[in-house]
Design a protein around this nucleic acid. Structure first.
Lengths: 220, 220
DNA sequence: AAAAAAGGCTGCCCTAGGGCAGCCTTTTTT
DNA sequence: AAAAAAGGCTGCCCTAGGGCAGCCTTTTTT
């Protein structure tokens, strides 16, 4: 059983794109980091130095491969115009999961919500929520939940909302311990609390954020 | 009264940074659009052409001004390295406002949530929610709501969630009409429905998205 | 083990593109 | 109205940085 779960977690990270060689992957990872940090592409010479090469040619061929495999693109002949493919940015949605008054007036921006990156880490993934079992936790059908892989399942706090895989499927629930058992509690009285031996519960991630786009056609 | 409201809406868009001259603003706007569309900075020559100039010098001086006023920055001497200041990206947070099971396993990404831009338009702004008057609409204290300015208040659908300013302050409520009156309905039975003459209600935006970052210390 | 692909290097070409002096014109401030 | 700032232009310099031929070495596939 446990083996099955491990296969699952691996599947989660399967890359749907053509695989990269070690050198290509190394360049790609460095490139992603550089672009994220600097907001612009490095030059081929910079990549050459970063990869400890003494000539730009290898970088050019690796870039060519990355381009052919669909990872990046650039404007021919123009400096620093490499961009990562659109759908690689952002968080991958891996599937679906069951689940007064102020008197101050608006003035200037007091802080900013940086949707370009702030609370999301590399490795995070998203799930689209189906069902209403978490409505009392303010998560409803159609929401997108951003999950973070859990390295140490022992360290999960009581009540953390997690995506947990048990034999019947994967579900978004509140995580609780009861001796050797794990309880997965819905946030909706119409659903039962589920209880499993701890080793049959594979926690695939914990909730770090919720995104809800409002469809204007559904605002009654 | 109505005049006051108009002053408010203007205040909303006050730019806290040093103002730009027309030429600088024009370049800045073009630059923002270009970077958003292409994922990389244009070259000075490109800007020269876009601004219908015959020499790069004016662009250089405008960029210098934009830099001194804190709008942009770049790496000296490196091509296409202009970046917009960090806190200008993303959505400005303008203040605070009262307010089952699947058997499919996760596999590959079915689609992607592009946090870099997808559902947000230029002009949108964010408000941090305080209070629990919208809990039944799944919006809770601490959430960040992304709002879109409403061009035509007549066109607001019944039940749309809006940020509305009335004489007592600004509030996040569900918008309803009752003859010449406007009803602002909370999504919480503990709060009263409010009713005002339509011309005393200034709708400052409608809800387009909700973002909730989960503080790991509060996951009980 | 053999063949193919990828990686690496030297060395060179050449242009995209940043920078700036000097001077004039237009716009904005005072 | 005068002064200051911003905008514009010509014209030039020069290097950051893309591109590639040719050949060898290492890794990956078959």
């Amino acid at each position: 059983m446990v083996h099955l779960f491990h296969e699952m977690t691996l599947m989660l990270w399967l890359n749907p794109m053509e695989p990269l060689t070690t050198a290509q992957q190394e360049l790609y990872d460095w490139l992603i980091d550089y672009i994220r940090a600097n907001q612009h592409s490095p030059s081929i010479r910079q990549m050459m130095r970063a990869m400890n090469l003494r000539s730009p040619a290898p970088i050019q061929s690796r870039l060519e491969h990355l381009k052919n495999k669909g990872y990046i693109e650039w404007s021919e002949g123009k400096a620093r115009t490499i961009r990562v493919r659109d759908d690689v940015r952002g968080v991958p949605i891996l599937g679906t999961i069951a689940a007064g008054f102020v008197n101050e007036a608006f003035t200037d921006a007091v802080e900013r919500l940086d949707l370009n990156g702030l609370p999301i880490q590399s490795g995070d993934y998203a799930l689209k929520v189906t069902g209403d079992s978490m409505v009392e936790a303010m998560i409803q059908d159609g929401d997108v939940v951003i999950m973070r892989p859990v390295k140490d399942p022992q360290g999960i706090r009581e009540g953390t909302i997690v995506a947990a895989r048990v034999e019947s499927g994967t579900t978004l629930k509140s995580f609780h311990r009861q001796g050797n058992q794990v309880q997965l509690k819905p946030a909706n009285p119409n659903y039962p609390v589920m209880e499993f031996p701890a080793d049959l519960v594979d926690v695939q991630g914990r909730l770090v954020a919720v995104w809800r786009g409002i469809d204007p056609d559904f605002t009654v």
